[in-house]
Design a protein around this nucleic acid. Structure first.
Lengths: 201, 201
DNA sequence: TTTGCCTTAGACCGACCGGTCAACTACAAT
DNA sequence: ATTGTAGTTGACCGGTCGGTCTAAGGCAAA
């Protein structure tokens, strides 16, 4: 078995296990077992558990960013980009809910929140990824303003607000373990943007 | 030393330690040491670590709810109640930041998020507390609508959106470790409510 | 003073933690 | 054939984990 496959299986296992519970409650042994990798190989591939966590963030982002590129294509009407963003989050959460019966929330903000006061490497990575996501949102917000569909304001600021709201909704849905409440993400973003037509298809 | 004082010191210690790092990274021994309580006494006062965490939630709320009662007094103009709510969060975060140089975020949503897929007792408690907070917000939103200061809508829904946004902002500030960004809470809530005058004193 | 009960002390438990290490295998270059 | 190197293995480490247990302390009622 090649090294890259070992790494990848570890990343996959770590991502799944940690997303489903938490960083603190998942041990290296457990990750190794799921990945079918022996402990020695783990520490050949990663220098520490938190190193793995940071790498898993990046790994998950690589999975996601191609969808973001499609979703936020400048070809699309900016409002569709935002509703597509909401839809992605909602279907993603629903998918995980169907598998395990639990709302898992956002892996970045969940683990980022758990570790950001303890592990600077992971915090930095979570911070970096949030910036990337906000960039996508910002372009859509900017175009909405340029097209006169929403009131002009600081697009970067509004994008950060949308992102904070999104993660807030998803985190709250996790705490409530209520999958329906994830859908609150769409009308809330509309309200933030000052768009009246909430029942838009 | 009486039992109640033992309990209280344990709650205080647990709250501080867990808020400053995370549930998973704080051990029972560490909590006992800070509280100056021996392990046997710990397990006399609480039946488990997660039992303590749930109790610490309630303990923190008891600390906070009296301020909420003042803040959300029906005597006050509803908009002042909301700005007071924002101010409370901001000063609270700033205070903790000055002490430890780190943005600590909301203890309820941080720990709630960390444990909600692992510990049903804690999840339930975090859920319950979020409902209480939303109730306060809802009354202010309701009154804002009644006074015609904002557009009429489902007050309960808007209150949940405000709460989700608040926790999202604070969590993101924790991940960014950027105390300034906590202040985003106020303009964001104004935007959610559709209130134009963002530079209001 | 004796009794009985709530509280505290701290030694102790086995399990598990993250991490290390020396031995080994597979394979490519010489 | 020999050497070098990358990858793998699993036994092993000291420390810490959450939690238990028994003995003793503190104190009120009798």
């Amino acid at each position: 078995m090649s090294e890259t496959s070992t790494r990848q299986r570890l990343l996959d296992a770590a991502l799944n296990l940690i997303w489903r519970s938490s960083y603190g409650s998942v041990g290296v042994d457990e990750i190794c077992q799921l990945a079918d990798v022996k402990k020695g190989s783990f520490y050949h591939a990663f220098k520490s558990k938190s190193d793995l966590a940071a790498a898993a963030f990046e790994y998950y982002w690589e999975h996601t960013c191609s969808r973001f590129d499609q979703l936020f294509s400048p070809e699309l009407p900016p409002l569709d980009r935002l509703t597509g963003y909401c839809k992605l989050i909602i279907t993603n959460q629903k998918k995980q809910y169907k598998i395990g019966g639990k709302v898992l929330g956002c892996p970045f903000s969940s683990v980022g929140c758990e570790l950001s006061t303890r592990d600077e490497t992971v915090r930095q990575k979570a911070h970096e990824l949030s910036i990337r996501i906000v960039k996508y949102l910002e372009s859509a917000v900017h175009d909405l303003m340029q097209e006169g569909l929403i009131e002009t304001a600081d697009a970067a600021e509004v994008a950060k607000e949308i992102y904070a709201y999104s993660t807030g909704v998803v985190t709250q849905a996790k705490i409530d373990n209520d999958i329906k409440s994830v859908e609150r993400i769409t009308p809330g973003i509309f309200r933030l943007l000052g768009i009246k037509n909430l029942v838009r298809k």
